[in-house]
């Protein structure tokens, strides 16, 4: 190591812990002091090596092991609560929406429009082809458009 009295402060410069004033003063000193210049070069090289090593780190998923040893569960976060609340609200809206037509049907004893609509839409026979797709030339694709029966439209 060098024997210059300022050597002890060089570490703070290399590690970025020195004040800007002190750092500037010591860097200026190293221009005229070969011992301190070499010392600072080494300290900065050493620091660069450690920094480069730190940048390459990979960490496995270690939390599970810690959690199991410590009896910690995965902590709940706030956003799932919001999602749960939103899902519950949506479910409620759907339930109310579905309950309304059933009530109207039971009132007059016959299936309402909504019931007809949903049941018909689920039935393949509801779709009436203008022309059988199998009769179309190949490559014509997507010309078989479903047609809503006129009787159904009239009932609306």
């Amino acid at each position: 190591m060098s024997r210059c009295g300022r050597t002890a402060h060089l570490e703070a410069v290399a590690l970025g812990e020195a004040s800007p004033t002190l750092a500037a003063e010591l860097r200026a000193h190293t221009k005229s002091c070969a011992l301190c210049r070499h010392e600072l070069n080494w300290l900065e090289s050493e620091s660069a090596l450690f920094r480069q090593r730190a940048g390459r780190d990979e960490v496995a998923q270690l939390w599970k092991g810690v959690a199991s040893r410590s009896g910690l569960e995965t902590p709940p976060r706030d956003w799932p609560r919001v999602l749960v609340a939103m899902a519950a609200a949506a479910a409620l809206v759907l339930m109310v929406g579905n309950a309304a037509p059933r009530a109207s049907r039971s009132a007059d004893g016959s299936p309402g429009d909504e019931t007809l609509e949903s049941s018909m839409l689920m039935t393949p026979a509801f779709f009436v082809e203008e022309e059988s797709c199998s009769k179309l030339p190949s490559g014509v694709g997507f010309q078989c458009s479903p047609v809503v029966p006129a009787s159904f439209l009239a009932s609306r």
Partner: peptide
């Protein structure tokens, strides 16, 4: 400890 490396070229 002399010579010293160049910190900017340490890889």
């Amino acid at each position: 400890v002399i010579p010293s490396p160049d910190p900017e070229r340490v890889l």
